[in-house]
Computed example of a mutant assay.
Amino acid sequence: MDKALYVAMTGARATLQAQGTVSHNLANADTAGFKAALANTEAFPVRGPGYASRTAALHIDQGFDARVGAQQVTGNPLDVSLQADRWLAVQAPDGEQAYTRAGNLSLTPNGQLVTAGGHPLLDPQGNPITLPPHQSLDIGQDGTISIVPLGEGAATMAVVGRIKVVAAGQEQLTRGLDGLMRQADPQQPLAQAPGAVMATGALEQSNVDAAGALVQMIQLQRQFEMQVKVISRGDDNAQSANTLLRLSGG
């Protein structure tokens, strides 16, 4: 009976972990450029002495949903929407290079270009981008940044930098605990994406299906309740069996 209890327990644990993934997706349903996390379970045979009759449930991380989210036109020159499989290169809190599709950019008081999360954008050389004082700014489709300096006319617009945008498929990236993507294989650096990589004045929304996620939460809750009942029934059966053994021994 203890075997059934342990198997049901692993299923309940995997269900709780899946609920955590779905909750995280729902919390980011309004986060620009967010990619829904995917989770699943797989059978895991329990190894050890004796007959191989036990199979536990194991929660596995299946990466993220790479589909492009809905587009929202904002007209803000600092909002960018990336083409499919294109990622902005940013500086992560640990100083390493990471990637995001969150295109709602902003400028700090000292002119540094950052994401909504405060992560500095990088240029093709891997340096944080800082812009000089200007009266207007334009980000081209290839990521080039042009400004009109303070006190100058539109004819004096000059290119002052370029945003690093890399090309990477779903299998080349893994999500970190800080929500940023990183290379799945550090030995294979991601290259600068050529040509038009973005549109300005628009934002990519989260690709989380909020209604579908809510339905999934309900299904997982019912599944968890069923697994808890199996554990409870197994415990009741074990107590009944122990009682019968004591009576027969008496």
Rank of each mutant, 00 (worst) to 15 (best):
A8P: 01
A12W: 05
R13E: 15
Q17W: 04
A18E: 10
S23K: 08
H24G: 10
L38P: 10
P45A: 11
Y51A: 14
S53P: 10
T55W: 12
T55Q: 13
I60V: 14
D61W: 01
F64P: 00
F64N: 00
D65I: 05
Q72K: 13
G75L: 05
Q83P: 13
R86Y: 07
L88H: 04
E96Y: 06
A98R: 00
Y99T: 02
Y99R: 01
A102R: 11
L105E: 00
T108A: 01
P109T: 04
Q112C: 09
L113A: 01
V114I: 09
P120F: 02
D123R: 03
P124G: 03
G126T: 06
L131Y: 03
P132V: 09
P133H: 01
S136M: 11
L137Y: 08
Q141V: 09
Q141E: 14
G143W: 07
G143H: 06
I145G: 03
V148W: 07
P149M: 00
G153L: 09
T156W: 08
I163T: 04
V166A: 05
G169L: 07
G179Y: 02
Q183R: 02
Q183W: 00
D185N: 08
P186K: 01
Q187W: 08
Q188R: 13
P189S: 02
P189V: 02
L190N: 05
A193H: 11
A196S: 12
A196D: 13
Q205L: 12
I218L: 14
Q219V: 15
I231P: 05
Q239P: 14
Q239V: 13
A241L: 12
G249E: 15
G250L: 14
